[in-house]
């Protein structure tokens, strides 16, 4: 499983693009893949879980979430600049946060997970 973390980091960097359009207050997550991913690309509840569990975003931020299964793209649209900045700050380094949490999980650091809450999905 240790190799999983190294692979995950490289694959995130290769396949997942996170772009911010500050002017329009839109953040886009685009997943590149050779073939269209099977099954559900993402759901809104899963996405919010990801921000909370891996990004530590515990407050309910007002944003519109548009998920496009075909283009494998998620657009987040904000009306409030502060909200936009909060989410961008989470997503900007979310890969590092995910890798850090995975490393703790692999080390069996259960205490860390006690406070992490749970997934809603």
């Amino acid at each position: 499983m240790e190799k999983f973390v190294a692979d995950a980091k490289a694959l995130f960097e290769d396949k997942v693009r996170i772009k911010a359009n500050e002017k329009d207050m839109v953040i886009s997550i685009i997943v590149k893949s050779d073939e269209k991913l099977k099954g559900t690309f993402a759901s809104e509840i899963e996405f919010k879980d990801m921000l909370r569990m891996f990004g530590g975003l515990n407050e309910d931020i007002a944003m519109e979430i548009y998920i496009d299964d075909e283009s494998q793209k998620i657009d987040l649209k904000f009306q409030d600049k502060d909200n936009y900045i909060k989410v961008w700050n989470v997503l900007d380094n979310i890969v590092e946060k995910i890798i850090d949490i995975c490393n703790k999980a692999l080390a069996g650091d259960i205490s860390h997970f006690r406070d992490l809450g749970d997934f809603n999905d």
Partner: peptide, 11 residues
């Protein structure tokens, strides 16, 4: 396994 996002996107 049905993986969670974002793992489902890359694995």
């Amino acid at each position: 396994a049905e993986l969670r996002i974002p793992f489902r996107w890359i694995f």
